[in-house]
Amino acid sequence: MKKYESFPVSPVEKKRRRKRERQAALITSPYLLWMIIFTLIPMIFVVYYAFTDATGAFTINNVKGLLGLEKETQNVIQSGTFIRLDFVKIFWRSMWYGAVATVVCLLIAYPVAYFVSQMRENRQQIIITLVMLPMWMNFILRTYALMKMLEDTGIINTAFTKLGLPVIHMINTPFAVILGMVYNFLPYMVLPIYSVMSKMDYSLIEAAQDLGCNRMRVFTKVILPLSMGGVVSGITMVFVPSVSTFYISQKLGGGTNEMIGDVIERTFLTETNYNVGAAISLVLMILIFICMAVMNRFSEDESQGGSIIV
């Protein structure tokens, strides 16, 4: 690019370039408009509602209340049975479940992506189609079906009983919730890692082997760094929806594994309290943003040209 710039630019070239710029602006404008209407403006609303009360006056109590910094001044049971530290607990639970689901997805997806990328072209296509297949079915249906499988009287336990095995209680446990997340979001981990690996320059691996690397070192020194971009975007694509998910925990977690997405849904739809709902959403967004920023910092040196989405 630099070399190119150093040449004097002819007027014709200048004109051509300006035209290209105009075309680029024209082509990207629908997306820009989309982002403004459906991302930027709603974000402004979220921030606005988070920092106002029902009358529209400025307040920081919504956010403070969530972080457990402020004891409720009114509307609290006198005996102190309830203090809204519960929010903090649920934020933690969401982040924790999301992190575990992401790690499990990564552990499953990485080897899959690697071995698939080593296969013959047409076989790769079949496997990748199979990975994507569950996504053709509606997310809510899939989760509901999983619920029917995991129940004490569900498909798995019925089969166990028939075989004379004891019933394993799975539904309404953290295990079920995390399983639900892994099941629903696994393709989002496999696909980015696979797409990076399938484009990997194989001659680099051969070079490492020629220069005397054993298999372990080939992996740690060549394959892993080269696939880092895919891993990072995979983690993002699994972690973010896992942390903010709301349906999975309701169907698979029973009443005791509520996640922050459920709280947001309830705050908006049952309580019709947009201010607190927006405050929770805002805190969640900031937490996710921090997680992603930390992760990007870690992987910055290793990922080269990998697409990182925050």
Partner: peptide, 14 residues
């Protein structure tokens, strides 16, 4: 109603 909803939220989050 607001009071009840808060209690409800606390119960669910407990």
């Amino acid at each position: 109603i607001e009071y009840m909803n808060r209690l409800w939220s606390d119960i669910l989050m407990k």
